[in-house]
Amino acid sequence: MDFSALNPVALMVTLMVAATPIMLAALGELVVEKSGVLNLGVEGMMIFGAICGFAVSVDTGSVWLGIIAAMIGGTLLSLTFGFLTQYLLSNQVASGLALTLFGLGLAALVGQSYTGIKPPSFPKLDIPFISDLPVIGPILFSHDFIVYFSFIILGGVWYFLNYTRGGLILRAVGESHDAAHALGYKVVRVRLMAIAFGGACAGLGGAYVSLIRVPQWTEGMTAGAGWIALAIVVFASWKPLRVLLGAWLFGGITILQLNLQALGVEIDVAYLSMAPYLVTIIVLVIMSADSKRASLNAPASLGKAFHASS
């Protein structure tokens, strides 16, 4: 085996790129789940965002418009889920799964005429001076705008949830919607806003795949990234900063898997593909060993329908 073909710096650069879409989607889903809503439609919103972004970029020639379109597309799709679960009180698990299937189908339909086209390229944004630093420069400071933006979102979500009143209200709604309602907070409104944010993040993550990471359109191209994002939220035990860790772990294994394959290493890809999920299970077991702590980690009202009956 020749490992010298693996350039660690290049590997880290691809890792950052691979981690970005799942981190974006996971951060969005984390906010949604913190508000007490379980949206299993992340995969559907991602792929729909991917095609919206791709199509608009190709048609207008502007990747920026594409990015915005992807976020709008993800939001619209998430709001159908929001309408179903928050107003019609339909089951969140079933609605979320339906959203995934719907998103995959809709994206395939919209994307029919876009297969094989190359989208306009996305500008790289080297940060002056520090991007010239050895090792750290290429890994951290010579990416496209979305990578930096995903870190801004990460910091923003962390700050919002822990240090702002809005974040406190969001957590309160996810903890006990009845108590939050009794105090006069608008449970449904808070949750819809969280769902919309989750949709925008998932859409952005999807567009990152179709416009920057791959960049082309093929049906089903998100290939389970949405499900990985859902696993990351649990892996991170609903804490924003741990999402970064999870995204790197999951992204890293994807990268490693591709590289090892290229090197012709004698290890079944299946083992590598299952590794992140095994790690998630192990983390869950460790977390739930202290049952009291575990119950405090997950939002207590997660997945429960709210109806103001008083």
Partner: peptide, 16 residues
Amino acid sequence: FSLFEALTVAENIALG
């Protein structure tokens, strides 16, 4: 009680 179990005393009071 309209309290939130996973939040601290201070956070609960701030919410009210």
